[in-house]
């Protein structure tokens, strides 16, 4: 259920990386959107379009080149480290590769217990109790508490990562491709866990994936990113059923469906341009299947509202 109020406000956020020889990677290139409290926002786009960088900027693991991230009304980008620290537990990140993010020398009990101890206010017995509660929530057995990460499968490790994120008591969870490396059966398990937790605990979730089927399954709203910008954002059903941006349509057409023989129209030609050489005008114009106009080559369309809460950045939408 979506509660009232905005938890995250992103304002003209950009992150550029220096790439040597005076070149600049415009990984995130000036984008603005909100995430409501208790909402799941899905973020899709091709590899390299800046999804992870955006996630890291919101988690304040990355310094923006310009723009703001407001968390519960507080501008995270303007906070000195001392003021930022107490806010950190409220934003947690779950990564694609759960193994790389888990300390191999610690047991599950220690890994999940650490954020609880950092938060303080709990006696040892209470910490132990809460750890068992958390690992139960993500579908692990109490007997798993004493084991080490290498003793688990990929899906189980991702559950440990989720339990650790929950232990910090977050309001926002940023899940960056949490199921990308998992088998369909395990993927379904993790999606179910995330969805249940999100609903039960009223969490706000930014769910990053390149798979539109997965994103549409778990998200209330969907944002489509192309070369550092959001080109379309709106209610999940509206974006999937009535996509307004040609890029969203192309992604949808390329997504395999469980319908025998459902072969799509011609797939989108060519590769994504380099974020070091973002095309002028509409950044999609080099691949756009629409009859592009002079305006497409010259100016970039802002996100315009085309249906309630549904915005797209295309001159012809």
């Amino acid at each position: 259920m979506i509660a009232d109020g905005v938890l995250i406000e992103v304002r003209d956020l950009a992150r550029h990386f220096a790439a040597g020889h005076g070149r600049v990677v415009r990984a995130v290139d000036g984008l603005s959107f909100d995430i409501a409290r208790g909402e799941t926002l899905g973020l899709v786009g091709e590899s390299g379009c800046g999804k992870s960088t955006l996630g890291r900027l919101i988690a304040r693991l990355e310094e923006p080149t310009r723009g703001q991230v407001l968390f519960d009304g507080v501008d995270l980008t303007a906070l000195p480290p001392a003021k930022l620290r107490p806010l950190r537990p409220r934003i947690q990140v779950i990564f694609q590769d759960p193994y790389a993010s888990l300390n191999p020398h610690k047991t599950v009990r220690q890994i999940v217990g650490l954020p609880l101890r950092v938060r303080g206010g709990r006696a040892n017995g209470q910490v132990r109790e809460r750890v068992l509660e958390l690992i139960g929530m993500v579908g692990l057995d109490p007997e798993h508490a004493g084991r080490f990460p290498h003793q688990f499968s990929g899906g189980q490790r991702q559950r440990i990562g989720i339990a650790r994120a929950l232990a910090a008591g977050p309001e926002l969870i940023i899940a960056d491709e949490p199921v990308a490396s998992l088998d369909v059966s395990i993927q379904a398990q993790i999606l179910q866990v995330l969805r249940e937790l999100q609903q039960r605990l009223g969490l706000t979730l930014l769910f990053i994936s390149h798979d539109l089927s997965v994103v549409s399954h778990i998200s209330h709203r969907v944002a489509v990113m192309y070369l550092g910008k959001i080109v379309e954002i709106g209610p999940a059903q509206s974006v999937i059923q009535e996509p307004r941006h040609p890029y969203t349509r192309a992604l949808l057409a390329a997504t395999p469906r469980l319908e025998p023989g459902a072969r799509r129209s011609t797939p989108l030609a060519g590769d994504v341009p380099s974020p070091m050489a973002v095309p002028p005008g509409c950044r999609f114009h080099t691949r756009c299947p629409l009859a592009i106009t002079e305006e497409c080559r010259r100016t970039e369309s802002p996100l315009r509202e085309l249906a309630p809460g549904h915005r797209a950045a295309c001159h012809l939408a």
């Binding site: 059966s185 379904a188 999606l191 089927s213 997965v214 549409s216 399954h217 778990i218 059903q237 469906r257």
Partner: peptide, 16 residues
């Protein structure tokens, strides 16, 4: 039944 269907939030997924 594990596979999320595009644009069919009414079809639930069921892990094995």
């Amino acid at each position: 039944r594990c596979v999320p269907r595009l644009g069919r939030p009414d079809v639930p997924i069921h892990p094995i």
